[in-house]
Simulated scan of single mutants.
Amino acid sequence: MQLETLATGPSSELTVAARGHGYSLQGQAQAHGGIVINMESLNVDEIKVYGGEYPYVDVSGGELWINILNETLRYGLAPRSWTDYLHLTVGGTLSNAGVSGQAFRHGPQISNVQKMEIVTGW
C-alpha cells in the first residue's frame, strides 16, 4: 500500500492514505497531517469457491481470512497459507506478503495468489 502525495496548491502537498481494517506494519494506513480514506465500504462481501482439479477462491481484498476459511471448509477445502490471526483482511496481509506459520511449507500468501486485480483510482 503506497502513500500518495497530491499537490494542493502552489507550495503545499497533501498526503493521502487508503485504510481498510488498519492492518499495516509500517504505518501505510496513516497520513500524518493528511487525509485517510476509509476503504471498508468497498468490500464486495462475496466469497466464491471453485472446486475441480485446481480449486481456488475468488474474494475481495477487504474480506476477512476467518470468513474465507469458514466458507472454504464447507467444501472440504482450506487456503494453503493464511495469516496467524484470522480477523485480518486479504488485502492487508497481501500488502505485506502474508508471511505466517504456514509459509515454511506453502510459501507466503502472495506466492499462492494466481490472479490479482488492483484498482488504484488514480
Score class of each variant (00 low, 15 high):
residue 110 I to T: 05
residue 2 Q to Y: 15
residue 95 S to W: 00
residue 118 I to H: 03
residue 73 L to S: 11
residue 64 L to D: 00
residue 78 A to W: 12
residue 108 P to M: 11
residue 113 V to M: 03
residue 115 K to L: 13
residue 95 S to D: 04
residue 83 T to K: 01
residue 74 R to T: 13
residue 90 V to H: 09
residue 104 F to V: 13
residue 74 R to G: 02
residue 120 T to M: 03
residue 58 D to S: 11
residue 85 Y to T: 11
residue 41 S to N: 12
residue 105 R to A: 13
residue 5 T to R: 13
residue 18 A to Y: 00
residue 28 Q to H: 07
residue 60 S to Q: 03
residue 12 S to Y: 04
residue 78 A to S: 14
residue 52 G to Q: 06
residue 120 T to V: 02
residue 75 Y to Q: 08
residue 28 Q to S: 11
residue 34 G to I: 09
residue 78 A to L: 12
residue 110 I to D: 01
residue 35 I to L: 14
residue 15 T to L: 12
residue 89 T to F: 04
residue 91 G to M: 01
residue 111 S to D: 05
residue 87 H to R: 11
residue 84 D to C: 06
residue 86 L to D: 10
residue 19 R to I: 03
residue 58 D to V: 11
residue 87 H to G: 04
residue 1 M to K: 06
residue 59 V to Q: 01
residue 106 H to G: 02
residue 58 D to I: 08
residue 11 S to M: 03
residue 12 S to M: 09
residue 97 A to Q: 10
residue 115 K to F: 10
residue 39 M to Y: 01
residue 54 Y to D: 03
residue 18 A to K: 05
residue 27 G to F: 07
residue 116 M to V: 13
residue 85 Y to R: 15
residue 58 D to K: 13
residue 20 G to S: 09
residue 27 G to N: 10
residue 121 G to K: 14
residue 77 L to P: 02
residue 119 V to Q: 09
residue 80 R to V: 10
